[in-house]
């Protein structure tokens, strides 16, 4: 792709300064780009730093967290040094975000209409009447029946799936260039999950947005993502086109993730698991951050952390197992 990226993240570090002088390196030196119209999945377990990466892009990191280093460019424009007021013109307008919990993500004391129109009035400077018409249209676009009535209703009167549709309507209202969806279907019924994901894919096409899809569901990845980044311990450990990554999985962690998926074609008694848990971000092991759980761990892995290397075209892996492959080719 030779187009300019919508989002360019360069060597981003977001640390949390905890009490007792611990520093949690939640996002530790991450670089990636997202191009217009692309769907990129960010995959990893809970605590791997996926959400913090997204919130860093939105500049919504709360204390004691802080972006320590790095650049974030939206459409080529650096946003790290923008002041809070300038940043409010970007959030919701150029980048929008959808969250995991639709049940709590809407303000309980304001009507749906109020919450959608306020974003239109803020960014598009619409009049009350125009904003109302546009909001009704948006609700219809995201597949909400009785849109006029829903405008006057409160979040508690809607189901989880409906609320997530409202969130999507809000997110696309200003036609952002990039939509970040942080586990948008995790809290929903299985039957609703596919509907919401399809809706997001449809909206992405309709408004020519790029989509950063954060998930821990590899099934979702294979169906919707063009490209996948696997995150572990605040770092990207594998990064490739979706097909390539699923067919030629390299990193032991990615393999572990895929093996822990149920497979209808195989007759297995037990699902695969990855032993242990993600180490806390203030206490990573000295070498490779996955070394304590890795089935292929070598002495070297415990000494130093490997770099993210391009071992095949557009396939990046952070693992000593493939150390020499890139050079041989």
């Amino acid at each position: 792709m030779n187009k300019e990226p919508v989002l360019d993240v360069e060597q981003l570090k977001t640390y949390f300064y905890l009490d007792d002088d611990k520093v949690a390196r939640a996002v530790d030196n991450i670089s990636f780009s997202i191009y217009p119209g692309e769907t990129v999945a960010l995959v990893g377990e809970s605590g791997s730093g996926k959400s913090i990466t997204a919130l860093s892009v939105m500049q919504l990191i709360n204390k004691p967290g802080r972006i320590v280093e790095g650049n974030i460019l939206i459409d080529g424009e650096e946003i790290i040094q923008l002041n809070p007021k300038q940043m409010t013109k970007i959030r919701g307008n150029e980048i929008a975000m959808i969250f995991q919990e639709p049940m709590t993500a809407l303000n309980p004391v304001y009507t749906i209409g109020n919450q959608i129109t306020e974003i239109l009035r803020k960014h598009k400077k619409m009049s009350k009447i125009d904003a109302r018409d546009k909001a009704i249209n948006l609700l219809k676009t995201v597949g909400i029946p009785r849109a006029e009535e829903i405008m006057k209703e409160y979040p508690h009167q809607l189901s989880g799936g409906m609320r997530q549709r409202v969130m999507i309507a809000m997110a696309i209202s200003c036609e952002p260039k990039l939509l970040i969806a942080d586990e948008p279907t995790t809290a929903l019924d299985v039957t609703i999950q596919a509907q919401i994901l399809d809706l997001m894919a449809e909206m992405k096409e309709k408004y020519h947005m790029a989509l950063l899809l954060i998930t821990h569901d590899v099934g979702v990845v294979s169906e919707y993502a063009d490209r996948v980044m696997v995150m572990y311990g605040g770092q990207i450990v594998e990064h490739a086109q979706t097909k390539e990554l699923l067919r030629h999985t390299k990193h032991p962690y990615t393999k572990g993730l895929l093996e822990s998926l149920p497979n209808m074609d195989e007759d297995a008694d037990r699902l695969g698991t990855i032993k242990g848990t993600v180490p806390p971000a203030y206490n990573f092991p000295a070498g490779c951050r996955f070394s304590a759980r890795c089935p292929f761990v070598m002495e070297k892995c415990k000494q130093s952390n490997p770099e993210l290397e391009e071992i095949e075209t557009d396939h990046f892996v952070r693992c000593y197992l493939y150390e020499n492959e890139g050079e041989q080719e």
Partner: peptide
């Protein structure tokens, strides 16, 4: 969460 949403909307 809804305050985070409001911030994410650019309020």
């Amino acid at each position: 969460d809804y305050i985070r949403t409001a911030r994410a909307k650019g309020m």
